[in-house]
Design a protein around this nucleic acid. Sequence first.
DNA 1: TTTCTATATTGCAATATTACGATATAATAA
DNA 2: TTATTATATCGTAATATTGCAATATAGAAA
Lengths: 110, 110
Amino acid sequence: MGTTKTEHFTAEQNELATLTKAIAHPARIAIIQHLIKVNSCICGDIVNELPLSQPTVSQHLKELKNAGLIKGSLEGNTICYCLDELGFSKIKEFFTTVDSYLANKNNQCC
Amino acid sequence: MGTTKTEHFTAEQNELATLTKAIAHPARIAIIQHLIKVNSCICGDIVNELPLSQPTVSQHLKELKNAGLIKGSLEGNTICYCLDELGFSKIKEFFTTVDSYLANKNNQCC
DNA sequence: TTTCTATATTGCAATATTACGATATAATAA
DNA sequence: TTATTATATCGTAATATTGCAATATAGAAA
């Protein structure tokens, strides 16, 4: 069929999938890295920074915003974007679990 | 159109996108969580654990393996899967950067 | 050998994502 | 008011992903 069977997985698993999927594009990673570098910026700055058209950048920003990874505030004519801590904190939880598991090297089967 | 413009992004950005994309599915997150729980297991165990057919589980395992997030070792008739530290360590680097940036709250524009 | 068991691959239909031109919206400047 | 500037949305084509039935492969057991 082609549709992900979200209904058979936990809310946590689906949320985590949504968050990591929002990150999983080189353009969106570049946007996140740029926001870390300049702290905050407007859409036009990112359009100048990336080899993508304005509508495409706008779409990527929307996806990051929907996932809760960035937030934007209206500043007159423009919208100022910066990272949203909330989204990243949810991802952090998962990777902390994974990393602390891997740190205890009882997992030598392979 | 429709193809991600990987050639315009850095190798690091593309690699990170590939890794996070491999994680970004509830079934693959469930597989990772199950492997953490039981340390290592065979494909059939995961088929019993998830509401997906054997070919679909096999495909998800392949994607996780290709991305370097799990590894499998032949044990006679079966294949024993466990987490692959290498893939996760590459992701860890990125999120460590993000988290330490967010910890220094100079980013209050929004 | 033959059969059984475990996993992978093929082929395909349904759905989702990516990218962008064209256009819409909305605030500012003239 | 009319431009200009910044961003979003629409529509659509190209491509990728998801899921599974059918089938292939390959080791173990009989």
